[in-house]
């Protein structure tokens, strides 16, 4: 509690515990293709937050309402090693929210051309399984998980498929990735808005709003979280911030 008050007072007086500006991210480090056996993979570090994302492809039946489209499945797990407050067991509401929020940005941005992942309409399509593993927690999981996912998808290769069998050891095509959705989550303490909180800042925050933008600066997904509120004008400010910061973060992915 006293820790929270310290962080709150600091933010309200215009400062942060690590001297960053309110719109400044910690250092971001991304490595891709770290797992040979996964078709796509990445490890992302934002400060001390660390997330590994693996992409595995398999062949399955399409959904009846989208007979000519591949299937996207996002799952997230919080390793109990990542924080004393994470517990072992099936994903809790926080892990489920993280997976569904990332799923929404990937899906709604149409960044994967799912129609190109159809093998035989109504019968066989590629399933893209994205697994997000939080291995160390120091705040800002949504932004990190989404960037890690985009990085992993960008390097995903499609395995060879012959005679009804997937040959995982040989890969031929790239995943058709046509956009780069980026979440920037804006946190609020009092009337101050800031990004990329550490664990202490995240615990002290009243509320958060995650805004995913795409290449042309449009918004493709929003999720508000926490028990606090945002006023409409604060939301408008948050959107401006996330468009500008999102554009800068997106440059990390353009080689």
């Amino acid at each position: 509690m006293s820790n929270n008050n310290y962080v709150k007072n600091l933010i309200e007086s215009g400062m942060r515990i690590d001297n960053r500006k309110f719109d400044e991210f910690r250092e971001i480090e991304i490595k891709t293709n770290i797992i040979d056996r996964a078709e796509g993979s990445s490890i992302i570090k934002i400060g001390n937050t660390q997330i590994i994302v693996g992409v595995k492809l398999s062949v399955g039946e399409p959904f009846p309402d989208t007979p000519d489209e591949g299937i996207l499945i996002v799952n997230a797990e919080f390793s109990p090693a990542a924080s004393p407050s994470f517990e072992a067991g099936p994903p809790d509401e926080n892990a489920i929210e993280l997976a569904r929020v990332v799923d929404r940005a990937i899906r709604e941005s149409h960044c994967i051309d799912l129609k190109k992942l159809c093998i035989v309409p109504k019968e066989k399509v590629w399933n893209i399984n994205i697994d997000i593993q939080v291995i160390d927690f120091d705040g800002n999981l949504i932004d990190a998980a989404c960037m890690g996912t985009v990085a992993a998808l960008k390097t995903t290769k499609i395995p060879k498929y012959e005679n009804d069998e997937v040959d995982y050891e040989h890969r031929e095509g790239e995943l058709p990735l046509v956009d780069l959705p980026i979440y920037v989550t804006i946190y609020k303490i009092g009337d101050k808005l800031f990004v990329d909180p550490t664990k202490e800042e995240e615990e002290a925050a009243d509320a958060r709003i995650s805004i995913a933008t795409i290449q042309d600066g449009k918004i493709c997904a929003i999720q508000k979280g926490g028990t606090g509120y945002f006023t409409i004008s604060e939301i408008e400010r948050a959107i401006e911030m996330s468009i500008i910061i999102g554009e800068n973060l997106r440059n990390l992915f353009k080689h």
Binding site: K218, I219, A221, Q223, K224, Y229, F230, E236
Partner: peptide, 24 residues
């Protein structure tokens, strides 16, 4: 009446101008 937003979930592509219209 206080314009305090307690829940907000959106999916689909909009410009920020369209969003402003939506929230009002």
């Amino acid at each position: 009446h206080e314009e305090k937003v307690l829940l907000l979930q959106m999916d689909g592509i909009v410009t920020k101008e369209e969003f402003k219209k939506m929230i009002m």
